[in-house]
Design a protein around this nucleic acid. Structure first.
Lengths: 208, 208
DNA sequence: CTCATCTTCTACTCACGAGTAGATTGCGTG
DNA sequence: CACGCAATCTACTCGTGAGTAGAAGATGAG
């Protein structure tokens, strides 16, 4: 509107510059997270990441402080998606069980995506102490979100009563695991898989 | 019996020497796996492991070829325990569901133990290519063991029918996860936790 | 007694990769 | 025009840790 550079012009407004910078930062994170997921954090040097983007290592340092921060940003993005999913889950229609299931499906899907996979595959020890603390805090938040949804479902009678904490661990484990085995190029889509897993967890192994 | 060195003698028979050597090898693996679990593989140098045992690094190399082999041996031990558990599970009394549940409890317990935890916490990328192949083979074996038990239970009607492969992934995920969060020094014992988790998986989230 | 073998050590080498110094180019502003 | 700032590069430093060379002490065999 008030911005005079609607068309393709080499003269960028301050706002455009900011978002260009932001886009580059994100491109670095995206490339990094994919390589971390493919080859592992310790097997991926920042030189490798730079090469993938056709840039040099100091450029990465221009956008991000150090390798630890690159990883922390990646997992923070993934955890942010999970937090958002919990908010949406709480607002979903239906009873407690419906809301939990909606959340769980989304949770599993995120864990098959770039940043979500990174959250699961990242061992805390890989992070520097302060980053590790931050990582733990966010994960604790995710855990408490899940427990809250579970407890609500047990309270309204739409879920079987049981140990909330243990249930959360069982669900998290089952739905985190795809981050380790699911091949993005595989036959079945993340959504199908997510629904399948949640179905199994909902009904249990034993016949009804 | 025929061995003249029953009492404590500094003169060791060939057999004693062999087992002494074996004991040292195992001590190295035990120390290594504990440190890998605590601090992570990449954060643990063989100098660290040697220091923990009060020996020097070349001594480790005297018993094991290289760091990769140390890790491979550790996970192989863990996977061996899981294979053994499957054999015992197949021989357990009761119907298919009973056998599966017995196996699952044992499976979860192993994953809270030193070598089992290492299996779960070890990312394939950490291993050298040939070791990685071996690791994959063994894990595939574990997976097929579990699927076999599941399929048998579905066949005899003691388990609900469903997608065997997906069910195996859901169970494995839920029961592997404790390797990441369970604190050996925690309140509840591995056996209790294992039973709790298996109970949840058996009955499902929804009320019956 | 001597020689081979096993165990262990001290003291290296060497590659890799995180992180930095400092130059360069180019745009935008006073 | 000159200066500052953003973006990017080439070419380093430097620590760490895997793996090795080679010596030294014990033990047992011929």
């Amino acid at each position: 509107m008030s911005n005079p550079s609607d068309a393709t012009s080499p003269f960028l407004s301050p706002e455009q510059k900011r978002s260009a910078r932001e886009a580059k930062r994100e491109a670095v994170l995206r490339a990094a997270v994919q390589m971390f997921n493919e080859r592992g954090f310790h097997q991926t040097s920042l030189d490798d990441v730079a090469a993938r983007l056709g840039i040099s290592k100091p450029t990465i340092y221009h956008y991000l402080g150090n390798k630890d921060q690159v990883l922390l940003e990646c997992v923070t993005i993934g955890l942010g998606q999970l937090i958002k999913a919990a908010e949406q889950g709480r607002a979903a229609p239906g009873n407690g069980a419906d809301r939990l299931m909606a959340y769980l499906v989304r949770y599993a899907e995120i864990n098959m995506d770039d940043f979500g996979r990174c959250v699961i595959r990242t061992a805390e020890e890989a992070l520097a102490p302060e980053s590790r603390t931050r990582f733990r805090e966010l994960k604790r938040r995710i855990d408490s979100d899940m427990r809250e949804l579970i407890a609500a479902g047990m309270d309204d009678g739409s879920l079987a009563r049981g140990d909330v904490k243990l249930t959360a661990f069982a669900l998290a484990g089952a739905l985190n695991w795809p981050a380790r085995w699911h091949e993005p190029s595989g036959e079945s889509s993340p959504l199908e898989l997510a629904r399948g897993l949640v179905g199994i967890l909902g009904h249990g192994l034993l016949p009804r």
